[in-house]
Design a protein around this nucleic acid. Sequence first.
DNA 1: TGGCGCTAG
DNA 2: CTTTCTAGCGCCA
Length: 875
Amino acid sequence: MTQGDEKVSREQYRLRTYGGPQGRPLQPCIPSDPVSVTGAAPGCTLSTDRAIIQFDADAFYAQVEENRNPRLKGVPLAVTQKYLVVTCNQAARRLGVTKLQGVTEAKLQVPSLVLVNGEDLTPYRQASKSIFSVLARFGRAERLGMDEVFVDVTAGVQERLQKGFLCSTYNGHIHTAEMALKQETKHRPMDLRAAKTFGVPAPEAESPFSSTPSASWEASLKIASHIAAEARAAVKAETGFRTSAGISCSKMLAKLVSGMHKPDDQTVILPSHAPAFVATLPVRAIPGIGWKMDQELSALGITSTGDLRNIPLAALTQRFGERNAKYMYYACRGEDTTPVVQSGAPKSITVEDSFKSCTTFPSALHVLQILAPDLIARLHEDHQEHTRWPSTMTLKWRQKKQGWSRSSASIPMPAQWSTSKEQQAEAIVQASLSILRKNLAQPFSLTLLNIGATSFLASVPAQRIVPKALRSFLKAGQGSSRHKSTSSQQVAGHAGEDMRVAALVAIAARRDYGAHPKGQPLAKSHERALNETSRACVAASSGGSSLPDMQASPADDDGWGAESAARAAYTAPHMPMSSSTHAGSSSMLAGSGFLASSTSMGTEGLQSRANAALNAQQISHLSADVLQLPMQSRHDPLHSLSSSVAPPRHLLRQANMLEHNSSDLHGSLNRMSLPANQAQEQLTEQRQHEIQQCHQASRGVPEAAPVSNGDMGEEPICKGAWGAGRPSGPTSNVDSALVKLSKLQQASTSSCREAGTDREFVQGTVQSSAEPSDENAISAPLGAQGASCQSVVLSELERLERMKVSGQHQAAPQWVSQSPEDVSADMLLARKLQDEELRWHQMHSRVSAAQTLKRKLKKETTLDAFLKKPALGRK
DNA sequence: TGGCGCTAG
DNA sequence: CTTTCTAGCGCCA
């Protein structure tokens, strides 16, 4: 359904489905208020005094990515973490991609699938926040994860009622107990979807409720449904996100129906229908009843809420405790009185990473050294917003032998707010390590590490004497003290440079141990190649060519090609971007179609810097004042801003952009235009070169983590980055990044080279020897792809080395100096990659088809039996 | 309050 | 049961 005719056709659909002039009356049963249940649950009443809406952003991560890069709209898109598809957009779903599917499998099934790495949650957190702030205007709002929000709109409804505001109809779909449901995903009986049942009216006679004319809750819910529509429209207008909503008198009911008519639509469930509706569901569908409780209930022979209703409250209490029992007892009857609790600042902030195996303390240290700065950066972000600092730190870990349970230990937060970020991170690393040493003996086998901060206390208030724009400006100027410029170009350029260098470090760091916890690992090179070919597809499609979609089923009328690309372009929302943003990061990419996402990636950071730069003239006189702030201001976040270490948040946020830039513009081009054997030769050459480079680069790098401050006194220590304490004069980002990068490169290369002897991590990239031979057919190009990315990192390393020698810190990175000709050559390459991919998938098409078939068959067996209704009033 | 389990997206 | 990277709550000691 396209945007334009949405309103009209929805109304038509509603009339067709639920009646109207030609169908049955819009309000089939008119129960009393509160609803007294005369049917299955004698004496039970439903509370109808509240109006609650549950909002749910459709395919949230995918939508965020689509908004970041509008070219992705309409293209099958999957957001990945490690080797998994964590979510995918509608286009991908139609082609059979599912949540938590393996990346390899998904890509095999849908060759045109575009993969976007979603391991950095920053953009999602921000999007989530903006959605929440819109919805919170409509009433008390409670977040549930990143993409769901409950809003209690009772007050708003009352207000409108008092003003004499009345709605004659419900806005959106009305779900009744009689409507058929369908199962969307195999393992999730809690995701309810309405089956399309056009023109099958539910029989009024079946209603177990007394019919008294009109009820106050009806008027309320009608208004609530209109509020829901307004709120969704506001969200769409202000943030660009499509949402679905469920409207009812309780959180449970609202949640149960919110997804019924996904995407971008809303559903009302009348309390009069609730008990009968809930009775049709498996217990697992009740929010709050998870896998464990479901298992326990199953053991008792209880699988449906109907079964559950036969169990007396006392028996449930004995088995599940009073709280759970009560909730279950009432929930299965359609009643839920849990309040909507206003959400505020998060109560805990954690970072974690999983890996296949980590067996020694040095390797654990390695992980901690990546996680800790990440946590610190988030804590600083949090501090800016809430002026608080955690008093407790918790380390959690998961061991292979202990299955999925996690152990944990807490200590008073070792990082003090008054110290520098580097000191804070180091404190956390050391504390974490000592916790591990206390609790583990080598060799262990960790598969996950999590560092968390809790028990936040109000911190020293941030001094608000500095305008926000000035903060941004100073932030933009960080690390470039020797180039005191007020020109927007230069500032933006420097910001970009810092971020790119930082991102390189992040890529290298994560790649180093980002192995796969279990199952068939997806080689990094493989993964990267998949990403590249995907991007090539997008580039080609937005360049106007249409790619036949081999996997599209005949019924799928929305396969992608020129038409859908055009439509995507037409419906694309406009990302607010200043022209200087482009100037700073991606001018040469404009209009190339390639790197489409890089133009919109990291806009927050870049844009604030660019905007700040525009104000530079205006505020430059202020800056002098600020620089003379008394020492006490070291508690001000400003100090952390002037620290030269780039926040890890920026690192990962920029990772995708870098991958786009580096792999697309460099590696792929020269290799793919070579014959295969030449490419192979070049590959081995490259690898030898890399190893040499690593060795060279690693010489002279200090052993220990180079965070050392001779001065531990009261003076604020904010200038040091990773390279602080090294003897060679003032340190810069470039310098410290270089050190880090060298070390990381060395570590990863040596662990690859001397597999089995020195390695601390069991690398997940070793292909099983039992792989079918056709794996080999693709290994050459994929390997080459992977090598290219690494070589770009290495060449960047070289460049930095040269820069350090010559002192030309403002030299542009290689990939920014692409000429227009090069870009059009890249377009040609895109076509080539696309052809390559097509050929590859022709080889696999039969396998793929078989798998799809199997999937479809499986899909239709599991829950349908459960959900198929006894056709109450139907003949 | 810490540690763990369960639930959620 | 299963995986990601989170976040919140309740129970128990």
